[in-house]
């Protein structure tokens, strides 16, 4: 078995798995009951999927100088995905997109209500 076939086989497996990760995200989007759980489905498979596909691309190109740019592309993804997920999740929590019956515990609610009460107590003089 020559190395060419091995590299081809590995990248083929990576490509199919990476495509499956997109499908996992879509299944999660369709099946999960509330916004927060859907967010898990939207972020995590996306990161792994891009990693697998970029690795497959690097293996197929067979030159060393593509690896740095692929690494940069993946690192940017790694930095931006949690930020956008956090922004969406935060907006979702504040606009009451949660279904409390699907949560077994909510330790943020008390804090939010405390802050709201404090804001009311401060009165209209503040703003």
């Amino acid at each position: 078995m020559n190395p060419e076939t091995v590299i081809d086989a590995v990248s083929a497996v990576f490509m199919v798995t990476g495509a499956l990760m997109s499908l996992a995200a879509a299944i999660g989007l369709l099946r999960f009951p509330d916004l927060m759980s859907r967010m898990h489905a939207a972020t995590k498979p996306q990161v792994l999927g891009l990693f697998l596909l970029l690795t497959a691309l690097g293996l197929q190109m067979r030159t060393w100088w593509v690896w740095p740019v692929l690494l940069v592309a993946w690192l940017f993804q790694l930095l931006t995905v949690p930020v956008s997920a956090h922004m969406v999740g935060r907006a979702g929590y504040r606009t009451k997109h949660l279904h409390p019956e699907l949560l077994s515990a909510d330790e943020l609610e008390a804090v939010v209500q405390q802050a709201a009460a404090k804001r009311r107590a401060d009165g209209d003089t503040g703003r």
């Binding site: 299944i27 099946r31 489905a41 498979p45 792994l48 943020l108």
Partner: peptide, 26 residues
């Protein structure tokens, strides 16, 4: 862990689906 996370999401989406229960923890 990134790999495990994706497969966990896949498993939960297929096996649990709408019945998944979560929590917000400080």
């Amino acid at each position: 862990k990134v790999v495990a996370a994706s497969f966990q999401v896949l498993y939960l989406a297929v096996a649990r689906g709408p019945r998944v229960v979560s929590a917000i923890v400080a």
